[in-house]
Design a protein around this nucleic acid. Structure first.
Lengths: 252, 252
DNA sequence: CCAAAAGTGTTGTGCATACACCCATGC
DNA sequence: GCATGGGTGTATGCACAACACTTTTGG
C-alpha cells in the first residue's frame, strides 16, 4: 500500500502552545493581547525567543502535554485550550542539512503539534511575579521579537484563529475572572479584534446569546452609575469549542 | 522547563486521510457522499475497515504523506486537501495494556495526523475499476461498517468539518470536473448537506460570489432548456482554504 | 401545445449597524 | 447639577429564504 520506504526513527514529536492573555500596555492604557515566550538555552536558535513546549511524554495525552507546558510557563491552568495545527514541513529548522551534519549530530526532524490557550488575565499579573524567570517573558503581540524556527508563522496563525473565533464563538470570557462587567467583556473583544465596538449593540448581542447570566451584584466604588456583574453561563453550547472532535464512543 | 520525564521512542507518528467523493447511490438516484476504506491485514483490528494511511516518511511533508496515501487508495490526485486534526489520546488502541504486552510486543503509542480530501467524482468511477483491490472499497457515509481504532470518531469529525466548510466556503467544485452546470454544483451541496436547496437562491449566491465563471458553452442533448456550463474561477480568494497557516517567510 | 428544468423578479423577515436618547451614581 | 459611563429605543440597510413567474428546449 505504501509506495515509499520510511524511516520513522528520525521523526520526533513535540507539543508547543501559544498562550494568550489580555492585559494593559501601560497601567492606564487600553488592554491588548500579550503572550509568553521562553528563551532558548541551546542551539539551534540559542538565545532567541520561542514558544513554550517540549517533547510529548510517552504516557501523556496531547492536550495534557500542552497544559503542562502552559503550567511550566505561566504557573496557571488554562481557561481555554484547543489544538491549533500540526506543523511538519521539512524546512522548519535551517540546521537540517547544514550545521547538524557538520557537527556530526543526527539530522533531527521535528513535527510540532501546537495548541493555543487563553489564560485569566488577572491571575497572570499575580503569578508572573513568582513564576517568571530570566528566560520567560511576556510580549505584546504588536511588538514581538524575532522568533526561533517557524514560530513567527505559528503565532500569526494562532492570532488569526483567535480573532476569527472570538467573532463567531463566545470564548472571550476565558480572559476574565469568574465575574465581570459587560464593559470588561467588551474591552476584551476590542483588544482581540483591535477595533472598538458599539457598547449598545455589544450588550444586545451578548444578552441575546445567553452566554452570560447576571449575578445580581454590582461593582461598587465607581464615580458613575455602577455596572452589573455577570457570570459565564456554563450550561450553554458545548458547540462553543467549535472545531473539536466529538467525544469518542467507549471501546468494547 | 519540563516537569515530567519523557520517553519519546515509544511514540510513533502516522498520517491518515479521510477521502470524500460524491456519487449516486444507485444509477438513477440522487448522489450522496462516499469514502474509501482499506481492510486491515494485521492485528489489531485485523479484517476490519480503516482509514487509508501509514507512517510518515522521514523526508516527507505531512501533506505529501496524505497525498501519497490518497493516491495509493484511489489512484487520484486530490482536488482539495487540508489538515483535519491530530489524534493522540492514550486510549486510541485497546491493545495498549493487554494483548500487545501479552504477546511480548512493545506497547506502541501512535499519534495520527489526519487530513481530509475531496476528489473528483467522475474520475473516481473510472479509476475505481483499475485501482480497487479486494482490500479497498467505497462506502456511503450513511452506511459505514464498524471501523478500526477511533476511526469512527475521525470520520464523524471530518464530516462535520466538510459540512461546515461547504456552507461558509466554496469548495464543492472540488467534487466536480473542470466544467459543470449550476444544477450539478447544487446537487453536490445538497449531497453534502443532506437537504435540498432552492435553485433560484443558490444561483444568485454562487453568481454574486464570483467563484465560477461562465464558459459560454452549454450542455447539449437535453430534452429541455440546455443549461450553461461554468468553470471554477481560480483568481478568487485563497482565503477559501480557510484555517490553514499562512505561508512562512523564507529562512535566512 | 406540453413537460421539464433553466433562469428572473418580488416580497418579507431577521439581524447587524448607527446613533439618538435616558438613567444612576459620585463629586 | 454636571460629568461619566451604564443602559434602552429606534430607524436603516442588507443578506437570505420563500415562492410566483417567465424562458427555452425536445418531443
Amino acid at each position: 500500500m505504501t509506495t515509499q520506504p520510511t524511516d520513522e526513527a528520525t521523526v520526533s514529536l513535540a507539543v508547543s502552545t501559544v498562550i494568550f492573555a489580555v492585559r494593559p500596555d501601560r497601567p492606564t492604557a487600553l488592554p491588548s493581547l500579550w503572550l509568553p515566550l521562553v528563551r532558548r538555552i541551546r542551539p539551534p536558535f540559542e538565545g532567541q525567543w520561542a514558544l513554550p513546549g517540549g517533547p510529548l511524554g510517552a504516557r501523556e495525552d496531547l492536550e495534557t502535554a500542552a497544559a503542562r507546558t502552559l503550567a511550566a510557563t505561566t504557573a496557571l491552568t488554562p481557561s481555554y485550550l484547543e489544538q491549533l495545527y500540526a506543523f511538519g514541513t521539512l524546512d522548519r529548522s535551517p540546521l537540517e542539512e547544514g550545521v547538524a551534519q557538520a557537527l556530526g549530530e543526527p539530522v533531527e526532524r521535528v513535527v510540532s503539534i501546537v495548541y493555543w490557550a487563553l489564560v485569566n488575565s488577572e491571575e497572570v499579573i499575580h503569578s508572573s511575579e513568582n513564576a517568571s524567570s530570566e528566560n520567560v517573558a511576556w510580549f505584546s503581540v504588536d511588538d514581538l521579537p524575532d522568533l526561533a524556527f517557524d514560530h513567527d508563522v505559528i503565532v500569526e496563525y494562532a492570532l488569526w484563529r483567535l480573532r476569527n473565533k472570538v467573532e463567531y464563538s463566545r470564548i472571550a470570557h476565558a480572559f476574565l475572572g469568574d465575574t465581570f462587567t459587560l464593559a470588561e467583556l467588551r474591552e476584551v473583544h476590542e483588544a482581540v479584534l483591535g477595533r472598538s465596538l458599539d457598547p449598545a449593540n455589544f450588550r444586545r448581542q451578548i444578552e441575546s446569546s445567553n452566554v452570560v447570566v447576571p449575578t445580581g451584584k454590582r461593582v461598587t466604588g465607581t464615580s458613575y452609575r455602577p455596572p452589573k456583574l455577570y457570570r459565564y453561563n456554563q450550561s450553554v453550547d458545548p458547540l462553543d469549542r467549535g472545531p473539536l472532535p466529538p467525544v469518542r464512543k467507549p471501546l468494547p
